[in-house]
Deep mutational scan, measured.
Amino acid sequence: DVEPGKFYKGVVTRIEKYGAFINLNEQVRGLLRPRDMISLRLENLNVGDEIIVQAIDVRPEKREIDFKYIP
């Protein structure tokens, strides 16, 4: 289970104008929005990159997770 405030290693699987989709595993995916990136820009991410993200909002009923990147 993903818990708000905890850090997780994930893989960038898709990049859109509104953010990057990060997979923690095959069943768990969330969104990293540009506003939640500190010292990292969306255009510097590539599909396949491994990054450490912090879960900031977890909505299991909608199967949605918002992430934050903190270097």
Rank of each mutant, 00 (worst) to 15 (best):
P34V: 13
Q54A: 07
G30F: 03
V47L: 13
R63H: 14
V2W: 06
E16Q: 10
V53K: 00
S39Q: 15
L42D: 02
G30E: 01
R14L: 09
P34C: 07
G19R: 04
V47N: 04
N46P: 01
M37R: 01
G48D: 05
G48W: 09
P71F: 05
P34A: 12
L45P: 01
L40N: 05
E16R: 10
R35F: 07
E3F: 13
A55F: 04
D1Y: 14
V12P: 00
L45H: 00
R14M: 08
I38F: 11
R63D: 12
F21H: 07
K62R: 14
G5F: 10
G10N: 01
K17W: 14
D57H: 14
M37H: 03
D49R: 05
D36N: 14
L31K: 03
A20L: 04
I22G: 00
P4C: 10
R41I: 08
G19P: 00
K17S: 13
K17F: 13
D1F: 15
R35M: 11
F21Y: 15
G5C: 08
P71K: 08
L32Q: 01
I15H: 01
Y8E: 00
A55T: 07
N44M: 14
K62S: 12
D49F: 06
L24H: 02
E43Y: 12
P60N: 09
F21Q: 04
E3P: 05
Y8F: 05
Q54M: 15
P71E: 09
E50S: 15
P4L: 15
D66W: 09
N25G: 11
Q27L: 14
L24P: 01
I15T: 03
I65L: 09
G19M: 04
Y69W: 08
N25M: 05
D57N: 15
G19V: 05
L40V: 08
K9E: 05
F21N: 02
N25I: 03
N25L: 04
I52N: 05
G30I: 03
D36I: 02
I51R: 01
A20D: 00
P71T: 08
G5W: 09
F67C: 03
V11A: 06
R63L: 13
K62P: 06
P4N: 10
I22R: 00
L42A: 03
I51N: 01
P34Q: 13
G48Y: 06
K62E: 11
I51P: 00
V58L: 06
E26M: 14
L40Q: 06
M37Y: 03
P34L: 11
I65F: 07
D66I: 12
L45C: 02
I51T: 01
I15S: 01
E61V: 09
I52Q: 07
S39Y: 11
T13Q: 07
R35P: 05
V28W: 15
D36T: 03
S39M: 13
N23S: 14
E50R: 14
E43S: 12
N44G: 09
V47G: 02
A20I: 05
S39E: 15
A20Y: 04
N46H: 15
D36Q: 07
Y18W: 14
N44S: 12
L40A: 07
L24S: 01
K62Q: 12
K6S: 09
F67E: 01
K17L: 12
E61D: 15
R29A: 12
D36C: 06
V53T: 01
I38Y: 11
R29W: 15
R59G: 04
L24T: 04
L24R: 01
V11C: 07
K68M: 12
E64P: 04
F21W: 15
N23G: 08
R29I: 14
R59P: 03
D1G: 14
V47H: 04
L32W: 04
I56H: 08
G10R: 01
I22P: 00
D49W: 06
V47S: 04
L32R: 01
P34G: 10
E16M: 13
R59H: 08
E64S: 08
N25H: 09
D36P: 01
V53Y: 00
S39P: 15
S39R: 10
N23T: 12
Q54I: 13
I70L: 13
P60H: 13
L42K: 04
R41Q: 12
R35W: 10
L32M: 07
G48M: 06
V53S: 00
R35D: 09
K9M: 11
V11Q: 09
V28T: 13
M37K: 02
R33I: 03
G5H: 07
E16A: 13
L45A: 01
L24Y: 02
L42H: 04
N23A: 14
F7R: 08
R29S: 12
D66S: 11
R14D: 04
L31S: 02
R33L: 04
V58R: 05
E3C: 09
R59Y: 05
L40P: 02
Q54Y: 11
D1P: 13
Y18G: 05
E64T: 10
F67Q: 02
L42I: 12
P60T: 10
M37L: 05
V28S: 06
F21C: 05
D1W: 15
V2S: 02
L31F: 08
D49C: 07
F21T: 08
E61K: 07
N46L: 14
K68H: 07
I65Y: 09
N23V: 09
K9T: 10
V58D: 03
P60R: 09
P4T: 14
E3N: 09
Q27C: 10
I52R: 10
K9G: 05
K9Q: 10
D57E: 15
V47T: 07
V28K: 05
I70E: 12
T13F: 08
V58Y: 10
R41M: 12
V47K: 06
R29L: 08
I51W: 01
K9I: 12
I38P: 07
L40M: 11
P71A: 10
K17Q: 11
E61H: 12
G10C: 05
P60D: 09
Q27K: 15
V53H: 00
I52Y: 11
D49G: 05
P4W: 07
E16C: 09
R29K: 12
E43W: 12
V11R: 13
E3A: 11
P60C: 07
K68W: 04
L42Y: 05
